[in-house]
Design a protein around this nucleic acid. Sequence first.
DNA 1: ATTGTGGGATTGTTGAACGATTCTTCGATA
DNA 2: TATCGAAGAATCGTTCAACAATCCCACAAT
Lengths: 240, 240
Amino acid sequence: MDGAVDLFNMTTVESEDWLSALTEGRDIDRSSTAERVAEMLRARVLDGVIKPGQQLNEKALGEVLKVSRNTLREAFRLLAHERLLVHTYSKGVFVRKPEWQDIVDLYAARRVIETGALRLWAQADKQKQKAVADALQLGIDRQMKEDWAGVASANNRFHQAVVDLAGSSRLNEEISRLLAELRLAFHVIAEPHLLHADFLRMHELIVAHLDRGELREAEDALGTYFDRAEKDVTAGLRSA
Amino acid sequence: MDGAVDLFNMTTVESEDWLSALTEGRDIDRSSTAERVAEMLRARVLDGVIKPGQQLNEKALGEVLKVSRNTLREAFRLLAHERLLVHTYSKGVFVRKPEWQDIVDLYAARRVIETGALRLWAQADKQKQKAVADALQLGIDRQMKEDWAGVASANNRFHQAVVDLAGSSRLNEEISRLLAELRLAFHVIAEPHLLHADFLRMHELIVAHLDRGELREAEDALGTYFDRAEKDVTAGLRSA
DNA sequence: ATTGTGGGATTGTTGAACGATTCTTCGATA
DNA sequence: TATCGAAGAATCGTTCAACAATCCCACAAT
């Protein structure tokens, strides 16, 4: 709602430009309790309040959240599909506990998606390019303030911005899922803050290359970032 | 079971090489009815038996399949997450009816993933490389026999093989979802068999380039394939 | 140390119930 | 004739209680 509507020129037909703009936004209330429960559980899992490996008891959890077992089970299905929970038949659902093989698989996927998206840099509009640089700047800010959670969050935003260069919502959702899954791994590692060592510098390098139109070099820099990150995370996971 | 087991040399301990091989295979029976129902519905939707836009009535469908509404709803959640169904609050679930914008988004994702994966051609093992060539050959076979469904299926297998070059199960699943969603679009188009016009030739070109180690050219050929395919499908969808 | 054998807890699935929401039908009104 | 609204049917959202199937654990038997 950024402008006044001329009520006198309104007709019942054919002024649907602003009407369709309404449907663009999120549906008002229209979310089921299962979805709200899932949303809430997702937040708790990602924050590490509920730890990897922990079982989610249907009855107990249902009583706390004041929802029926059936509704809860619907929420479980959603999160299991996002790989945040694992559903083992007849045993129940557990918070996913990523193994190092998962991380290898995950980084293989990220490598393909992100380098694939980065190649579209030149074709992307200025706004999307700016989002990448902005995310980097945000990370630098947070690092100066020694806000490590903020650094991690900015890092995620950086990579989401890179993928968004391709402009595909499906791809955006997938990278979000992958990053969320990765975040899960950090809750298994003892000292996760040690991991983001000099990643910001590597991101600066990427953006610097992009600014100079050195696409190939930017891709390579992204590649070495992945190599390094994968090595660190799998190592941290193995020793956990 | 392709060999005899030496019963006399068996010990209870430490012959776990074949034991771990067992867990590699799929879980035996361990699938819930919801998953089986989902599997069944997925097949029907992809075969076009249940057509895009059609509503899936909970009560009626539950009675036919002889499952309770709750179980059915769990299955719905799974398929909605795969974008084969859409779940509209308080209105029910419907078979997804892709719009042309969906196809644009979808192909943007495919472009990124598949070209990203194709770049790993040189690093992939021979077996995975062969799978790509095999899928192409299968398509050629089917075309000669004028088995158009077979051609389409081989086409899918080709692109799945390309993605599998990256060796990430997560990526494999994602491309499967995308291809399934695309298949949905064909059920909206009047004459889908017209679409696969000279795609096989383009695939031949890709493989030929790969054989000669001309990676860049192979990527470009894949790119033009996407351009062409996207144009055809969106056009077919617009005129449907 | 491995293999039975209970019983208790948890999950899988069902069927019924009821409020809330949507769709439909059909007059009433301008 | 077209619009509006209200009654009623259909469908969805969610809960609850129940029971079978399965798993888990402790303990006894060999």
